[in-house]
């Protein structure tokens, strides 16, 4: 599903964010990406989101070399992804319903389809009763569940999450992880960047540890 072949990412003044990285994540896997700040976790996610391209090597997702995609193909590729941010990035002026429906709406889906998908995922994350609330009226855990609902509404094949529990307490973190495990159980590949080693231990899935842009441990 996801394959990095000798990927390096070089920023100015000879600083490598990633160096000769080779990894493989199979379809339907649940993988943690961990390591200290500056290890290259976010850079790898940026490459997977095709916000950036490798300086060297190839990043292959679903058999497609991401660096070779045209602008239109990048849009099409991103429609197969779901992304969860550490700070939720919910639109404060929109209700829960509008936040989730925003994705199918900007993808040009019919209104009936937008509503059907939105209700489905809100029900799935257990927040259909809060659909008319605004993000500021929700707890941190609820906000992250809405963000996950938004990532799922387009039925992605891969979920990428950058420190999704970074702003949550341990209990809420576990709750979010359980939700992501349920997503994974439905066949979606999940890749989570986090530096919370305790959480990784409690969830107990494969983890790749990065340091100075290289994989230093696989467990």
């Amino acid at each position: 599903m996801i394959e990095a072949r000798g990927v390096s990412k070089l920023y100015g003044r000879g600083v490598y964010a990633l160096q000769d990285l080779t990894l493989r994540i199979d379809k339907g896997e649940f993988v943690f990406l961990t390591g200290p700040s500056g290890a290259g976790k976010s850079t790898l996610l940026r490459l997977l989101l095709r916000q950036d391209v490798p300086s060297e090597g190839e990043m292959i997702v679903g058999g497609r070399n991401l660096a070779a995609l045209t602008g239109r193909q990048v849009q099409s590729y991103r429609r197969s992804l779901g992304f969860v941010f550490q700070d939720f990035k919910l639109l404060q002026a929109k209700t829960v319903l509008e936040n989730v429906a925003f994705v199918p709406r900007v993808l040009g889906l019919a209104v009936a389809q937008q509503q059907r998908r939105t209700f489905q995922v809100l029900k799935w994350v257990g927040l259909q009763h809060r659909m008319n609330a605004y993000p500021r009226e929700l707890s941190g855990g609820e906000q992250q569940r809405i963000a996950i609902a938004r990532a799922l509404v387009n039925d992605p094949v891969i979920i990428l999450a950058d420190e999704p529990t970074g702003n949550l307490d341990p209990d809420l973190s576990l709750e979010i992880m359980n939700l992501l495990r349920e997503v994974n159980a439905r066949g979606t590949t999940v890749l989570i960047a986090t530096h919370d080693r305790e959480l990784i231990r409690r969830v107990g899935r494969r983890s790749l540890t990065l340091d100075h842009g290289r994989i230093v441990e696989v467990s």
Binding site: Y77, R78, L107, R150
Partner: peptide, 17 residues
């Protein structure tokens, strides 16, 4: 900007952005 970033990340057509 948040809205635009989300649109970019979900692959919204440029015309929508």
């Amino acid at each position: 900007r948040d809205e635009i970033e989300i649109m970019q990340l979900v692959g919204a057509p440029l015309t929508y952005i």
